[in-house]
Design a protein around this nucleic acid. Structure first.
Lengths: 206, 206
DNA sequence: CTAGACTTCAAACGATTGTTTGAAAATTCT
DNA sequence: AGAATTTTCAAACAATCGTTTGAAGTCTAG
């Protein structure tokens, strides 16, 4: 009957860690809480991941490898088809994250974990993310630069910085808007994506 | 010689706690680290504040009481003078925070602590902030509603939610833009405020 | 000056932290 | 089947956590 039986110990730990990190933060969630939620032995974390810090990095790697791939794939398709606009490029960035959020296997809290990482200002974690996934933001920044040739470099960077903030915050569901009753999770997320693209595109080209 | 001598034990603890909470989070910063940085005895925290949770709330109270007062004061002045526009109302919200950031007495990290609180999704902390300072956001939301009568309630709430995200993220300095060499902290912050107002106003009225 | 209140201090409380150990159990390979 | 490898487990490690204690120190009012 237990759903978790079909997952490996590794996957059970990653899933429980992701949920608890989202809820309590990296320092706030202990390995005992994680292993209890995953219904595995405490020592399994150090056996499979070596340390808590490595577990944290693995929580990101599990989602970000595919998320980055899908984002860049969509972006490349747009450019190849000559369909690149502020709206479609923003869509290429947002939609893969939205699909991840709707993924049955617990992807719905990962964006919250990702936003937590932004708050860790000087830690190894931000360096890890920047080193391993910074190229994604770079490619998107280049696409925006092509679409906004009238903006000088400084002006563009300011706007992209603000746009990343709006996207990060909204996709982590940090805001106060709750899903309306009678509205499915999918509908709610799609509404959010629609407004997010509209708002951010206007801010970028203002 | 030591600058801290002019501050009371209470103030020294609040200042050190604010800085360490910004850097390591609430769970990540221990009371021993806080009292060591403040150069006071460990027991002083429980003597003056009762508990770590109370200390956290007091870190917010110390800044937010005045910040909220100044924001609403500016907003009221705008409305009295009939000068309310998206730009001026956003300015009323942002400028007091900018001034706080430039305050010599360590206000520069408080906005980062505030953004951390947004990541604590279900904790007592968000309830505390919402209960005690939620009226500020409510008053500003009402002002925006008056300025954007063409938007229905749902549409308006979505945009305000996204705007709050952009403001929170940017004012916490979570982004990647660094202060340029030869640029003062004040100039940097003022540039940020200018771009933030421009971007957000465009997003709101798009 | 002295009594009383306020503040600081070193030390210790039990609980919890991440990590390690070595043996038991389960799995894989020949 | 048995040998070898991988995985799980209960137990313990030292370190650190928030909090409490009671005595020593500092300050203020009468």
């Amino acid at each position: 009957m237990q759903q978790s039986a079909q997952f490996s110990t590794r996957q059970k730990i990653l899933g429980a860690a992701e949920a608890l990190f989202a809820e309590r933060g990296f320092a706030g969630a202990s390995l005992r809480q994680v292993t209890a939620a995953a219904k595995v032995n405490l020592a399994a974390v150090n056996y499979h991941f070596g340390s808590k810090d490595n577990l944290i990095e693995e929580v990101f790697r599990r989602r970000l490898d595919e998320l980055s791939r899908r984002r860049l794939e969509r972006l490349a398709k747009l450019e190849a088809a000559g369909n690149a606009s502020l709206e479609t490029v923003l869509d290429a960035f947002i939609t893969p994250a939205l699909e991840l959020s709707l993924d049955r296997k617990g992807g719905s809290v990962f964006m919250r974990v990702l936003a937590r990482a932004f708050a860790e200002h000087n830690s190894n974690l931000r360096t890890f993310l920047s080193d391993n996934y910074g190229y994604v933001l770079k490619d998107f920044a280049a696409a925006f630069a092509r679409l906004l040739p009238q903006l000088d470099k400084q002006e563009l960077y300011w706007r992209l910085d603000i746009a990343v903030g709006a996207l990060t915050y909204a996709m982590a569901d940090f805001g106060m808007i709750q899903r309306r009753s009678g509205e499915s999770e999918r509908e709610h997320r799609e509404q959010m994506a629609k407004h997010l693209i509209h708002f951010t595109a206007a801010g970028l080209r203002a």
